[in-house]
Simulated scan of single mutants.
Amino acid sequence: MVEQLRRRKKRKWVLDWIRRRDQLGASARLMRELAEEDPKGYRNIMRMAEVKFEELLEMVSPLIRKKDTVMREALSAKTKLEIALRYLSAGESLKSLQYLFRVPHNTISTFLPEVLGAIFEVLQPYIKVPPSTDEWKAIQKAFECRWNFPNCCGALDGKHIQIMRPKNSASLFFNYKGTYSIILFAMVDADYCFRYIDVGRDGRSSDSTVFRNSSLNAAMEQNFLNWPTGGLFVGDDAFPIQPYLLKPYSHRWLSDEERIFNYRLSRARRVAENAFGILAARFRIFCRPINLSVETIDLVVKAACALHNWLRVTSTTYYLPQGSLDMEDPTSGEPVLGAWRQEPTAMLPVDRLYSSNNYKRDGEEVRKRYARAFMTDLAVPWQYAALRKS
C-alpha cells in the first residue's frame, strides 16, 4: 500500500498554464495591447478609459494589495481590479474569467467581494444625499431647466436585481414575478446620478417596507434633509402620494389637466428609469440572474452604482451605451423606450407601496396645485401633444 501511494503522481500546486499568467494572461498581454493599440476596445472591456482605470487602481490598491509569501507570489492589485471590472461589465462566469486571466475561479470567488467592497469604499463619496440647502437647490434648478418640473429634488424608483436562488432561503427572495431577487431602491438627480441607494432588501419583502422603511424616508419625515421649502420627489404609481412625493394620476377617464400633469411628471421621473437603464447597459451583470452569495451581490450593486456616478462626474468623455435611455418623439410626445427594457432578465419594477390616508389627502392637494399650474403659468408649448395620444 505504501509503495502504491509513492507511485501515485503528485498533484500539482499550480497548473502549468496558470503559471504562465504573468507572460500570457489577459492582464499581461491582451489588456496591454488594447491600451496601446485599441483604446475603444479597452474601454469596451473595462467600461472606462485606461486613464480612469489607472486612477481607480491607485485608489483601491492599498485596500486589495497582498504581500508575497515564501510559497507563492501574491496576485497583483491590477489583475484583481481588471477581473472585477470585467465581471461587472460582461457578467461572465467565474470559470470564463479563469481562462481569460489565468486565475483559478475559486481564487476569483475569494477576492471578488474584497475588490468590490474596496471600489465602493473609495467611491462612496460620489453617492451622497445633498447635505445643504444650496445643493438641493442646484438639483431643483437642473430638473426645472432640463425636465421642466420645478421644485423637484429627485426621482425615486425601485428595481428588482435578479439573483439565483440562495441556498436554504426557501421563499425568502421569491418575488411577485416568479423569480428571486434583491431590491435596489434609489433617488436619482437630473443628471442620472444616484444620490441615495438602499440595497439588499429581499424580493419577497412586503412592498410597504421598501420605501417606508428606508433611511431616506425617515430623514424626510423628520425634516433632516435641509432641503428648500416646497421641495419634493417624483415617482411612478408604485409609490405612495405624500406632500413631498408626487406620483401620476392612475384612475380611468383622466381630464386634460390630469393627463398633462402625468406627461410632465413622466418627463421628470423617467430620469430614474433611465439611470437604471444606463446601469444595466453598461454593466451587463444586471441582465441575467447573478449567481453569487447575497452578501457579495449587495457589493456588486453598490460598486456598480458608485462606478456609474464616479464616471459621470469625473469623465469628460463619458458616453451613454446605445439603447440605455428612453427618448421622446418631439411631435407626439410619446416615449420611445430604451432597448434595455427588452432584456428578459433586466431590472423589474417594484410593486405598489404603502400610503397613509392623511398623507394621501395632503399629497393630493399638492398634486392638484401642480396640475393647475401646468395648464397656466407653468405650461410648455409641446405638452399639448400629449393630449392627442390615443
Rank of each mutant, 00 (worst) to 15 (best):
K10V: 15
V14S: 01
V14L: 08
D16E: 10
I18W: 07
R20K: 11
D22P: 08
D22M: 10
A28M: 10
L30V: 13
E33Q: 07
L34R: 10
R43T: 15
N44S: 05
E50Q: 11
V51A: 12
K52D: 06
V60M: 07
S61E: 14
P62H: 03
L63G: 12
L63H: 13
I64W: 09
M71P: 01
E73W: 00
L75I: 13
S76N: 04
A77Q: 11
K78E: 15
L81K: 03
K95I: 12
L97F: 05
Y99L: 02
H105E: 10
S109D: 15
S109Y: 14
L112D: 01
E121A: 01
L123G: 14
L123S: 14
Y126N: 05
Y126H: 08
I127R: 05
P130V: 07
E135R: 09
E135K: 11
K141P: 00
F149P: 15
D157I: 06
D157S: 05
K159T: 09
H160K: 02
M164A: 11
M164L: 11
R165C: 11
N168P: 00
A170S: 10
F174R: 04
N175G: 07
Y176F: 11
G178R: 01
T179I: 03
Y180N: 15
I183H: 07
L184G: 13
A186P: 11
M187V: 09
D191E: 11
Y192C: 02
C193I: 00
F194A: 08
I197S: 07
V199G: 04
R204H: 10
S208I: 12
R212V: 06
S214V: 01
S214A: 03
E221K: 10
N223D: 11
N226D: 06
P228D: 00
D236P: 02
Q242C: 10
P243W: 01
Y244G: 09
H251Y: 08
R252D: 06
D256H: 06
R259P: 00
I260T: 12
R267H: 14
R269I: 04
E273G: 04
F276Q: 03
G277I: 05
L279G: 07
A281K: 12
R284Q: 15
I285A: 04
R288V: 04
R288A: 10
N291W: 01
L292T: 11
E295V: 05
I297Q: 09
N309P: 08
R312Y: 09
V313I: 15
T314Y: 05
L320V: 12
L320G: 00
G323A: 01
G323V: 01
S324M: 04
L325I: 13
M327W: 02
P335W: 00
P344C: 02
P349E: 04
R352H: 12
K360R: 14
E365M: 08
T376Q: 13
V380K: 03
V380N: 03
R388H: 09
